[in-house]
Design a binder for these strands. Structure first.
Length: 545
RNA sequence: GCCAGCGUAGCUCAGCCGGUAGAGCAACUGAUUCGUAAUCAGUAGGUCCGGGGUUCGAGUCCCCGCGCUGGCUCCA
């Protein structure tokens, strides 16, 4: 509907213009928001091409937090351009320009965009358009676009959008393609929503674990020892110990056995596991006496060695091996981020070897454990994703038809039995088996992927794992990978941000601080502190003046 | 890795057109013992990320490294 003063979305409808020229009203808030953002991105493109006429257009979609537009231009955009662009957008908007659609033939469109030198658009049209296609004109900007768009820029509230940041990107997202300059912005249907979004960004900055980690003296990363490698300070390590002890006790209670495996192994192990072939780019490889070794990027082959160290009977199963295993993986320098994305980290890893009959119970117990752990750390909201294979590309997956059905039945059955809600992700499974991922939602609503339960149909075969069944024959066990916290480093980062640094008492690195009132109470304060610490409290004595 | 930006005291930052480095907080010393973050006085602290170069002279300009930050997945 048209609200007052130019008319905006008022929780009822957004007036839009479809490509065929008809007017419509979009009432679905999600759809309206997407159209609104997409239109704002065109407005931004119009502002940019008007300020910098030598700029050519890439694409400019709405995305989950706003929108972006990719541009091709010789000179670089700088931070200082952003306010100028924003101002220009408001200026254009005040003229109440219409989004004018037009249907043209493919040839006509190619001519039009070629003339304008918009070669990227021409490429897109050649690839994607049918015989007839639609373009929208906004002021001097003509863009190849299916629409719909808001009817006119008057429907865009000048206080509902912001131009936020610059980034590099690649044409069609492929790093082999030419580089483009991306400008990000965000828009909301109302200025209030924009304001609360900006406040949330501010809140996220306030909680940044990199800042809090330094201020609370929890951890650091030294340029000299290397990027992506965490140095745990005493206070951080204290929290880590609490986490590990809590987890260890719980796992022992639930029938896990702890194992410990070496950090390096001959490449032969990684050839058998398949990592050497498929995971090579992420592995650190080095030589000892002319023989190649690998620093472990995963713990599974080690656990498998222990399983294989002797003959196993069905009476031994299920076997649950757990390890806080430190692994190293090469990550591109540009993706490293505090504790959340690192090159060396400790997984709270475990592998379960069991019979097909035991799978359902194992998964049920596992999901129960996941929920217990999450609740213990103060997370009560989560999302669960069940990733299954792409039915149309069965050939790309390991395991038999029967394996996949058995696994999926067990996963779904277990989720049902404990009343868990999940989302089914078709085609998201890894090639070696289906999985369940648990994403928890933190204090300010952000999802974090932590727990994962994965079937593995390849490793038991590659390592020829077996157990002797009641029939006296050898059978192949089912193997499950599972992590609860994922990586301790990453989990610590998430905890810091979730609690904004204010840990609950059982996790807090310092549980009590004793402060003497004056010089003459010092000795007494020290006694109080040592008494508390004797009782197992993490105490500090602050006897500064 | 690629694109853009950044890298000055422990932290946050200032340092204009190149002339040889500064503030606040923190630290330390002394005074103060005062009811809820920052009392007063003083002291110390910097290979201006590293390495080359231009220059009489470089934190400031150029080149090469290293690191950090935001992106590089959302598809007309």
């Amino acid at each position: 509907m048209q609200g007052r003063g130019g008319g905006r979305f008022t929780a009822m409808a957004l007036r839009v213009r479809y490509a065929d020229g008809t007017l419509g009203e979009v009432t679905d808030p999600g759809e309206a928001l997407e159209i609104y953002r997409h239109s704002t991105s065109h407005l931004m493109a119009a502002a940019v091409t008007s300020l910098y006429p030598e700029t050519h257009l890439g694409i400019g979609p709405a995305v989950s937090d706003g929108f972006y537009y990719d541009f091709q231009r010789e000179a670089s955009f700088g931070e200082e351009d952003l306010p100028l662009i924003e101002r220009k957008m408001r200026e254009l908007l005040s003229r109440d320009l219409r989004f004018e659609p037009r249907i043209v033939s493919k040839e006509e469109a190619i001519d039009l965009f070629s003339q304008k030198g918009e070669h990227l658009k021409v490429e897109l049209i050649r690839e994607k358009a049918g015989e007839r296609l639609s373009c929208y004109r906004l002021g001097d900007l003509v863009d190849f676009c299916t629409g719909p768009h808001v009817d006119s820029t008057g429907l865009i509230d000048p206080d509902s959008f912001r131009v936020l940041s610059l980034a590099g990107s690649h044409w069609k997202g492929d790093e082999r393609n030419q580089r483009l300059q991306r400008i990000y912005g965000t828009a909301f249907l109302t200025p209030e929503e924009l304001r609360s979004y900006m406040e949330q960004l501010e809140e996220a900055r306030r909680r940044d674990h990199r800042r809090l980690g330094r201020e609370l003296d929890l951890f650091s990363i030294s340029e000299e020892s290397g990027p992506g490698l965490i140095l745990w300070h005493p206070k951080g390590a204290r929290v880590r110990l609490v986490i590990e002890n809590f987890l260890r006790d719980e796992l022992l209670r639930r029938g896990y056995e702890f194992v410990s495996t070496p950090h390096i192994a001959r490449n032969a192990l990684w050839r058998t596991s398949g990592h050497y072939e498929y995971y090579r780019e992420n592995m650190y490889v080095f030589e000892i006496e002319d023989e190649e070794f690998v620093i472990k990027p995963m713990n599974c082959p080690g656990h498998i060695q222990i399983y294989r160290s002797r003959m196993r009977s069905y009476r031994d199963l299920p076997i649950r091996y757990a390890e806080f295993g430190t692994v190293y993986r090469y990550e591109k320098s540009g993706v490293l981020h505090g504790m959340l994305r690192v090159r060396g980290f400790t997984q709270d890893d475990a592998h379960i070897f069991c019979t097909r009959d035991q799978v359902y119970n194992e998964i049920t117990a596992l999901l129960d454990l996941v929920l217990f752990i999450m609740k213990s750390f103060g997370f009560d909201k989560y999302k669960v994703e069940l990733s299954v294979r792409d039915e149309s590309k069965k050939k790309n997956y390991a395991g038999t038809e029967d394996d996949w059905r058995m696994a999926e039945d067990a996963l779904i059955g277990a989720m049902r039995s404990i009343g868990m809600q999940w989302e089914r992700m078709e085609g998201e499974a890894v090639f070696y088996g289906p999985k369940i991922d648990v994403k928890l939602i933190d204090a300010i609503g952000r999802p974090w992927q932590l727990s994962t339960v994965q079937f593995d149909f390849t490793l038991p075969k590659r390592f020829a794992l077996a157990y002797i069944g009641p029939d006296g024959q050898a059978h192949q066990p089912v193997m499950l990978h599972r992590a609860l916290l994922g990586s301790i480093e990453r989990f610590m980062g998430v905890l810091i941000e979730h609690y904004a640094g204010a840990f609950p008492i059982w996790l807090a690195p310092v549980q009590a601080v004793v402060i003497p009132i004056s010089e003459r109470h010092r000795a007494y304060a020290a006694r109080v502190a040592s008494r508390l610490s004797g009782e197992g409290m993490r105490v500090e004595l602050d006897d500064r003046n």
